[in-house]
Nucleic acid binder design. Sequence first.
DNA 1: GAGCTCACG
DNA 2: GACGTACGTGAGCTCA
Length: 963
Amino acid sequence: MHLVLVDGSSFIFRAYHALPPLTRKSDGLPVGAVAGFCNMLFKLSEDLKGEKTPTHMAVIFDYSGKSFRNDLYDQYKAHRPEAPEDLVPQFPLTRDATRAFNLPSIEQEGYEADDIIATYACQMRDRGGKVTIVSSDKDLMQLVDENVSMLDTIARPGQPPMRWIGPDEVFEKFGVTPDKVVDVQSLCGDAVDNVPGIPGIGIKTAALLINEYGDLETLLARAGEIKQQKRRETIIENAELARISRKLVALDCNTPVQIPLDDLVRQPIDAKLLVPFLKAMEFAAFTRRVSTLLEVDPDDFSADAALSATAEGHSGQSGTSADTGAAHRTNHGPEAHAEAVLEKIRAIPCRHEGYEIVRDAHQLAGWVEKIIEMGHVAVDTETTGLDNQQADLVGICLATEPGAACYIPLGHVDGVGDMFGGGRAEGQMDLRTALDMLKPILEDPAILKIGQNIKYDLGIFARYGITLTPIDDTMLMSYALDGARNNGMDALAERWLSHTCIKFSDIAGTGKSQLTFDKLSIEKAATYAAEDADITLRLWHVLKPRLAAFNATTVYETIDRPLVPVLARMEARGVSVDRQILSRLSGDFAQRAAALEEEAHELAGERFNLGSPKQLGDILFGRMGLEGGTKTKTGAWATGASVLDDLALQGVPLAKVLLDWRGVTKLKSTYTDALPDYINPRTNRVHTSYHQAAVATGRLSSTDPNLQNIPIRTEDGRKIRTAFIAAPGNLLISADYSQIELRVLAHIADIDALKDAFEEGLDIHAMTASEMFGVPIEGIDPMIRRRAKAINFGIIYGISAFGLANQLGIARSEAGDYIKTYFQRFPGIQDYMEQQKRLVKAQGFVSTIFGRKIPFENANTKNPSERAFIERASINAPIQGSAADIIRRAMIRMEKVLAAEKAQADMLLQVHDELIFEAPADKAEAALPVIRKVMEGAAEPAVRLAVPIQVDAKAAENWEAAH
DNA sequence: GAGCTCACG
DNA sequence: GACGTACGTGAGCTCA
């Protein structure tokens, strides 16, 4: 006898995440998870043919809502995120699918699937039969023995598609034999199910203890014998927690199952049941495949009427399960948990004073001990400035619990106003001594360091030889949850805690007379600084459960958080900039500007400030009386480039001179004059700052200086790029994604013509022109191609006839015709646009292919122009944002792969679709293919793109030549 | 500090 | 038919 028990709920979630969000064609019902579920069931029955053929088989589901474990411990599984919206209607359908496969679908109120599985497994084992549990859930591993094995069908990259789990595999995972798994789990707990365990004990320690003492009760009884003082105390203190945990993880083999084991006898797959179901789901290809294997003609069956798109209420009525989103929104749902935490934290009053000032090693040792005990700490550094590549450390704040924070002054000076700078202030620890005490904590992989914009602190600590890890960042948590709103600490404190933080200017003054942090008295500094750490810790408590409750954990944990140390290293490396080149260019630009200025004055007939749009407008449209002037929204004359372009075309020489003057002065003031001032005297390089939580779509931004807008479009501008050079003996590598946004669009909107064109490596704009204007791709008129290109860009931006007309300098009606033609040629595009508009209105956000949410406030505004704006932005955001996520993923993976492939190149800069590296001259060529491979494959395995991604990479002495 | 202009993707 | 427009940024300058 062989009983096969399928863990249905884990099948559903796996199916859901493995497949793109398919919908049923005729009515849009989400069916991706159902499709995956059917595939997995079918594959399983194929795989189990031969000697493994089951005599008994069933699919077991979790009954939603509470189980008896919630009565034992109300926080059990409290962190579980709510099921995604489009998965909810698929729960009942998977029960239908199970029955269509002629399998019993079993679930029972008050019990989890695991208990039912355990009960049947025990029954079959007692009869002397074999059992296979199809699941990868480690909680089921306690059931494994020589007759009970598990089968994990999840496919992981680089591993076989299925894996048998027997006693050896369990030992590998838990360090104990299967019968002791429960004891280990009750000690180490389980973060996923929110089983508490004993704080500070992980799998390794738990296995060690259980192997030494035999089982949990013996261990607890003899806990006094444990040598390590800390461990001994926590185990004695938390013995009860371990006992509760044991009850939570131990599976119940005596569930009063309502269907006897004998009724689980395997019935053969019956085409009469299966084919009508598959037809109702409209899985055409799968229906054919199944029919062929069952040797039936699919046309002999009609779709199951009760489940068809035409049937009313299909998604709500079938099945028996209450496993829906609504059922999860009970008192124990993740949202409720997040709200409860928020209330709890808000109830702890914020103080502005009374924080401890740590002045000696003894005090600091107390904090170190407390931090080890907690396993996490909020950290904030105070420094002499805002540039973390130059500022010096002045003090460190730590917080372990809301209200429990300290300030460690390390670099305060006194003698304010003394031109000799005064001396070191009294009552501070020696900097090195303090750092030596803190380093083990700050680098301990078991202690979480929590910060607000922790990249700044990473940069500071790195310069003192400390690598902060692992980390959490409240700013990035807020970003993953609420997008690019003000994610600064003061705003977050107001938003979540209704607390007004002390402003830096309140203690340091403003403007020119503002004091740097080291000049503040230690007492004054302490209130401000310790509050920062305290608030950061409170925000962490509030935001952490919200990530889970609002489905933002994956983006935060797999994209945003791991990028932090990568960016910190890029910022620390900086880039080499050649002063001489810039200074020569400045001189050149200055001469040309002066000549142009002179010419402008002559043409205008008076001397005026060319840099003043106000004066210029008055001259052009006032005194000279030129036609075609428009006003800006404040009523001033508009004198932007497009206005001056028009005038120049009309034959106004002054306009052309002004355009040229603006061109050179822009390059001079913003680049050739400004950049040298950013060269760091310590490193002799320019270190930009990347902002990770600033851009709505998920892009990075760069400031101080902005290295993402270095000129390239004009010949003069490009000269500036020649000043970005590799260090002696090195080369710069530029690697950029080709047409990444159009490729992403082709994937998201599922446009066959675009996908094919990218597959074939066609010139995409020429292809568009060819489709639209019916001309051959080869030898296309450059003018026509230019128009097609503008349209392609327009599509990405949420096209409007006005915008396109403006861009191309054509009539609005003509632009409107182009758009119409485009939509006819590529019908999927309009569907995509309408879909995003619907989504933003219905849920207040749109999403990237990796699940990043881009929220829009006022998504339901009645104001027509604001509404149109939000619509265009929500069309653009998933495209720009998905591309941004792809390059973030590439950056995260880059360093590790370069090291593994023994390629040498340091990542320096990111410019949205381009990465710049520095590599030893003789190693650069070898690094190119590695870099390309990482960038081109960055979406996988999370998303399998329907288009190939192409990256062009080149090495040269400077950025201009490498691009 | 707001508004304008313009550099980039 | 209103509404005022292509999407996303940051910096330097003028002028109140």
